[in-house]
């Protein structure tokens, strides 16, 4: 990533200007052209350094009060296959394999389920267990009780 890209990221990480030509406004701040800003953003997206342009919602403020982290203790040889299978459920918003901490923490597959109510989360979880035949797999549901901070990573 070059210096210009870095400047661009620093400038727009807090949001795009809310003006009809936001990329022109950014260009004026950087002393470059609108075309140049547009092509830099496109190249950052194509290279995969940037995920996308768009919005991130504060899910709790939007009524998604039940945010559950569901953790599974899956045998190592099955974890990739199940991780892939979890994608089919549209209520699963994130799915990662993470490091175990034995003996305190045996769980290696983490997924997030967001919903308006705890009951709905549990119903969705039941669907996952039935569809993927996870009856024998130990799991736990960790509902969030309070959110203290949600500010996103900054650079």
């Amino acid at each position: 990533m070059n210096h210009q890209h870095q400047q661009l990221i620093t400038l727009i990480q807090d949001g795009l200007p809310l003006v009809p030509r936001p990329y022109l406004a950014i260009a004026e701040q950087l002393g470059t052209t609108e075309t140049e800003v547009i092509s830099s953003i496109q190249s950052l997206l194509h290279s995969g350094l940037m995920k996308r342009l768009g919005i991130v919602v504060r899910h709790r403020q939007l009524g998604y009060r039940a945010n559950a982290m569901v953790v599974w203790d899956i045998p190592d040889h099955q974890v990739t296959q199940l991780g892939q299978q979890f994608k089919q459920f549209d209520f699963v918003t994130l799915c990662y394999r993470r490091k175990r901490h034995l003996p305190q923490w045996p769980y290696n597959l983490f997924c997030m389920i967001h919903s308006q109510e705890q009951d709905t989360v549990l119903q969705k979880l039941q669907t996952m267990i039935e569809v993927c035949q996870l009856q024998q797999i130990p799991h736990q549901v960790l509902f969030s009780k309070r959110c203290f901070k949600q500010c996103g990573a900054r650079y």
Binding site: D14, L16, L53, I55, V56, Q61, Y155
Partner: peptide, 11 residues
């Protein structure tokens, strides 16, 4: 405060 971000999302 309903949106936490509007802009570029990165890895």
């Amino acid at each position: 405060g309903l949106l936490s971000r509007f802009g570029l999302l990165y890895h």
